[in-house]
Write a protein that binds this DNA or RNA. Sequence first.
DNA 1: CGTAATACG
Length: 263
Amino acid sequence: MGAEEVRLVSWNVNGLRAVWKKDFLESMERLGADVLMVQETKLQEPQLTPEMTAVNDSKAHWSFSTVKKGYSGVGAWTKTDPAAVRHGIGMPEFDDEGRILELEYDKFTLFNVYFPNGQQSDERLDYKLRFYDAFFAYANALKDKGRPVVICGDVNTAHNEIDLRHPKANAKRSGFLPVEREWLDRILSMGYVDTFRHLYPEEEKYSWWSYRFNARKSNAGWRIDYFYVSRDILDNGWIKGAWIDNDTFGSDHCPIGLDLVIP
DNA sequence: CGTAATACG
């Protein structure tokens, strides 16, 4: 039997109803994902349309915020049905905002996560850091049992100076604070690989640009969307490619991807 | 400035 090629794509759509009006289906087709994961859907179940839930041959999975309307939320379209789909990590404090989808496949577990933004207040920064803590405790339990783990989504932090256009000007803003950057160090030291950076150590490529000040036009961006994999996935030679697609529009983020070859 | 409901990113 031949090896199986799998394309995983992650995209913070900043409002699913908004991108839907901006050629989303066309982008989706062009991206060619086996699993397309989206963050910030900004809707609840009653606002889903039949078109959103029935895309081609894919099955749709959703997690909604139960505490705020039109806020947060993640989703995934899967061409192959996962063996199990889970919502959240069993901690209401971190599950209520609909930020986590766990798709369990035969050979690996895939997480789609919209990590909190910490810019609103000190409380939200604290929530963000505790969310990192709680989520990775959950994911590590699987990884440390020997299960290959893929984690993708909007991490809402740029790791190093290479990961944003204006590191000096943003050194004191949430999204590039030392305490947040240290958390991204910790993710690597826990045994995950930042796939894009691993393949392209010198590349200055971003996945998010503020809507203000024509930031995308001047490429004043940040790389805050990631595909992390547990080290075994790299060591076993599953990684065929990792990419950031700056040519797809419709949101303040662009899609990112991971191509795997699974024996 | 943009999304989706007056807050949040």
